[in-house]
């Protein structure tokens, strides 16, 4: 498999204040990683480990502060269930707007509108303003849009499965189909069974560094062991008797 994106010693940092040369937070520290065409990669790590920054880097939304990125892939989009939605527009108009924002041509969007409408099962609501939707209906619209209009590379950083029980089942299976349709998929999921069954490789991030790359099973096992031990350390530290005078 050829390489779709290669990261070589990549650093990303965020400014903490307004000053141009002020303090920065280094979210990724010297990451090196290759993502191959058609592979399904799981990204795991605790909160603040740099997962979201890595995804945004993959989706080409941010520019690295140091290091080298090489790209050889088509459109890449982060799965977003409500990108640019406006409450006063109808479901149909929101699908068009969101599709245009994601870089699809109007012709392509128009050709998929019927499929989005069917998939969403919104019925008459599809042509009513979004503000009349329940939150479940809104999520269904967003999910249907994401399933019908999709890029070459899919980056997923969201809770999966939306709507009521029946739609959840349907959306889960649609997503599984999509994931297995030959796309390159990068997935952040705290749902371990789902990641296990969908992904064929995993990268484990901690403190902005790559702790390991390997099979999904192995990475999850290492991550859990590490997580348990750091929690144990934290717990034993907080179990220490308080110092005198500091209660």
């Amino acid at each position: 498999m050829s390489v779709a994106i290669g990261f070589d010693n990549v650093d990303v940092s965020y400014p903490l204040g307004w000053r141009f040369r002020g303090k920065r937070h280094r979210a990724l520290k010297g990451i090196s990683l290759e993502i191959r065409h058609g592979e399904r990669l799981a990204v795991l790590g605790s909160n603040g480990s740099g997962k979201s920054t890595l995804l945004r880097l993959i989706a080409d939304l941010i520019v690295p502060d140091a290091g080298h990125v090489s790209r050889n892939h088509g459109p890449c989009q982060m799965l977003n269930l409500s990108l640019g939605f406006m409450p006063h527009l109808s479901g149909r108009q929101n699908v068009i707007l969101s599709g245009l924002l994601q870089g699809f041509s109007r012709n392509h969007i128009d050709s998929r509108l019927g499929a989005v409408e069917d998939f969403s099962e919104l019925g008459d609501f599809f042509d009513l303003p979004l503000r009349t939707y329940s939150s479940g209906m809104r999520a269904r619209l967003g999910f249907s849009l994401a399933m019908e209009l999709s890029p070459d590379m899919l980056v997923i950083d969201e809770a999966l499965g939306v709507g009521d029980a029946a739609f959840q089942e349907k959306s889960r299976s649609a997503l599984t189909d999509k994931i297995h349709s030959g796309l390159t998929v990068i997935l952040v999921s705290h749902n371990e069974p789902f990641a296990r069954e969908t992904c064929d490789r995993a990268v484990w991030l901690s403190g902005g560094e790559v702790k390991g790359i390997g099979s999904v099973d192995e990475m999850y096992r290492k991550y859990r062991d590490w997580d348990k031990s750091t929690r144990a350390v934290a717990r034993s530290a907080s179990d220490l008797p308080p110092e005198n005078g500091k209660t």
Partner: peptide, 8 residues
């Protein structure tokens, strides 16, 4: 917020 989610 939009620019953080999509390249425009």
């Amino acid at each position: 917020h939009m620019l953080r989610q999509v390249r425009l």
